[in-house]
Each structure stands twice: as structure tokens, then as C-alpha cells.
Amino acid sequence: MSNASNNGKIKVATVWLGGCAGCHMSFLDIDERIIELAKLVDIVHSPICDTKEIPPVDVGIVEGGICNEHNLHVLKDLRSKAKVLVSMGDCAGLGSVPMLRNQFELQDCLDRAYVAGESTALGQVPEDAELPKLMDKVRPIHEFVKVEAHIPGCPPNAEAIWCALTSLLAGKPADFVKDVSHYD
């Protein structure tokens, strides 16, 4: 991978789409190695940085599947700005838990959550121009954009994330899956 950015560091952006934030938690779980990682990369956009726009980056990391139109918008934005796109976790790569709602009609899911809930009185499905519209079906990200590598796991353990990043940074193919990754 060419180090196009300044200080010879690689620019990384991470986004949190239809997921539970567990993958980002696991990302932080690489503990003190984050210092080592910081010598190699600049995390320029992330749920843990306060930046609104995604700048052009070398590596884009995606947590979560595509549940609503905003997810899709962010994904396409990141794809257009990242040289390499990586899925982090089962939701982004394998669909996993959020995908379970695909067995049901979207309207039934909304009714169950907002109207027919046991503790709900006079509930109604929220509707506002500001709210992103839910996709009819939840999909993993590679059904929308090209993805260079996938790190499965719910969440992927810190080792898998570390291996994936260091392999990618070293320009090696991301064939780390056999040794460190898992689906659960």
C-alpha cells in the first residue's frame, strides 16, 4: 500500500452503521498496541473522533450492516473516499443478527416495536423527514459496494483486528481468517 499521506502515516476512517458498537469496543481492546498502531496510522474519522465529514483515506473500516438509507449513504461516501474498504464484524460481512428481521415484513417489525409492544400505550411508528428511512431488507455491505477484506466475528477479537490491519498495512493479502477469526 502506498503511503500517500503526510508523515508517512496511513489514514484510517471507521464508521458505525447498523451494528451495536461492539466491534469498535473490540477495536479498542487491542490495548497498548494502540500506541504502536498510532505510530503507523492516523484515525481521521471515527465514532470516537469528532469529525463530520469523511476525508479521503487509505483504509475505511465499516462496522454494521445496511439497515437504513443513511447507512447506505455513509457506506457509499466512505467507499468513494477509501482506497481499501474493510468490513469489521458479522453484521457488516455476514448480515448476522440485524438480518433476522428480513424474515418479517418491515411494517410488522415497526408495529411490533412501536405499537404492539407490551408496555406501549397509544404508540405510533415515528415518521419524520429527519429520520432515515429503513431499508426493506437488511443487507451486508458487500451487496452494495466492493469490499477488499472482511474480518468476521461478533465482535472480531482484538487479535483478528490487529492481524487484519497489520497485514493490510504490510501490503499482504488479508488471509488471516483461518488462524484468528471466528463467527461468534
Binding site: S87, G93, L94, G95, M99, L100, N102, Q103, F104, K137, P140, H142, E143, V147, A149, H150, I151, P152, D175, V177, K178, S181, H182, Y183, D184
Partner: peptide, 20 residues
């Protein structure tokens, strides 16, 4: 699952049928 790991499956290239 084991066979998935063994064959390096990190994502599925077919559409999920998601039957109920």
C-alpha cells in the same frame, strides 16, 4: 462453522434466502 473457517469463508457471495 469449522468447515467455514477451514475454507476461509469471511462473507457469503450469494443472497441470503432467510426463510422463516
Amino acid at each position: 462453522q469449522k468447515a467455514g473457517y477451514e475454507h476461509g469463508i469471511t462473507h457469503v457471495r450469494y443472497d441470503y434466502l432467510l426463510p422463516r
